[in-house]
Design a binder for these strands. Sequence first.
RNA 1: CGGGACGUAGCGCAGUCCGGUAGCGCACCUGAAUGGGGUUCAGGGGGUCGCGGGUUCAAAUCCCGCCGUCCCGACCA
Length: 482
Amino acid sequence: MADDRKLPLRAEDFSAWYNEVVLRAELADYSPVRGCMVIRPDGYGIWERMQRALDDMFKATGHRNAYFPLFIPQSFLQKEAEHVEGFAPETAVVTHGGGKELEEPLVVRPTSETIIYAMFAKWVQSYRDLPLLINQWANVVRWEMRTRLFLRTLEFLWQEGHTAHATHDDAEAEARRMLGVYRTFMEEWMAMPVITGLKTDSERFAGAVRTFSCEAMMQDNKALQAGTSHNLGQNFARAFGVTFQAESGENEYAWNTSWGVSTRLIGGLVMTHGDDRGLRVPPRLAPTEIVIVPIWKSDEERARVLEAAERIRTALGGARRVHIDARDTMKPGAKYYEWELRGVPLRLELGPRDLDRQQAVVVRRDTGEKAAVPLGDLPARLGDLLDSVQAAMLDAARTRREANSIRGGVTYDRFREIMDGDGAFVYAGWCGDAACEAAVKEETRATIRVLPDPEFRSATAPEHCLKCGRAATTEAVWAKAY
RNA sequence: CGGGACGUAGCGCAGUCCGGUAGCGCACCUGAAUGGGGUUCAGGGGGUCGCGGGUUCAAAUCCCGCCGUCCCGACCA
């Protein structure tokens, strides 16, 4: 990371910067298995924070965790026509076990709808068993042609929620509700603003009736699909016989939803908040919120500042995740650079001169602002600062996204220029024609990321389709995507 | 699977055109001094130069083949 480099960067430069940050901040590493990534402790620490926050939110919405098999009989995947078509090309298949060829090959799960709804069929008998709200934390495998650290690896970690409901409307409400949970998490924890809405048919999950998604803008103006939530209708219930007896006495198929977010979120975090000095992690997500760098010249001073650092940690009452960097093999300046690379939100510099003045120097990672704070004020001030960093990061990301969004008034020629150039979220009218959508993708590489929910739509609805000029049926957000 | 770049120490690279038995920076180890934004000095360890074959007295270097990685596409969370 050269000091003169300034984000946002474009295309190849941004990719190179991203890889460099992920590797140098020790979030992940390449593994001996091509396309598979090793998540290192620093990266996993962020994932654990994400897991905890999401899991708490799922518990609050009444979901319970369970675990289903890694292996799925190949025939299960084939029971839902669209699903098998969508996933068969990217599955890893186990053909041998115990030295013998298996009678039926086992697919390493690319997603768990099939095996989970096979079990739901046993568990659901009555409308009284519904809704059934299950979540699973697991790894899945998808044999992608090209991989990218965190964004697209052959194996990845995720959570997948699976639910069964008595009515279509209940399922629709559930899919919507969990999309909202994702949005809250992404904005309030990750400080990553998203556009929510509906996917077009071409981007819909294989087997779903409707797919909703959260789309975030990275610093190269590309879109990242950060989370999806699907209304599966009765497609899987019919395929796996998930039926229940309704209050009326009739036997009916259940209505399902599924929704998931993955370790891709870590990639999104880096590409949303990283800067020339490395990573920036929002306070609520940071495994370490505050790092104290003690400064000393003699053993006597060392003992004095370390003791003071411990007192500060104690004063914070265990409410804050604090690390005291007492390494005596590194000078303070070197430590500053290292913690900046790792993205710790607040740094507290504490030396003999500070102690003489009963103060500490607090430095924000997001803005680089420095301030001397009286020791007695630290607990309150640090709390305020962390809140302020969290809010400022979300605000900055949202401002950047809006600065790179174009709402209406774009000709198709101009649109092509934008997609050839810096890229943007372009809000444009869409006539609902899949052929038109495909033609735009062919010509510009841009796709409809999402048909935005009302609150994200432009004030004046577009009247005509960007490409073919026909009357628009809805507004679409176009962008190049990861 | 197409198009480009590349493969030399843990990491990043030079050396390849013009063949002569391997080097630099960082990291690592030892010692001393240092310590408010990447410490300094001295000493040290570590490489069958991606793999296989060929040419040659001699190959990291030239020739042929293979493998792998990264980036750009096709596929996708």
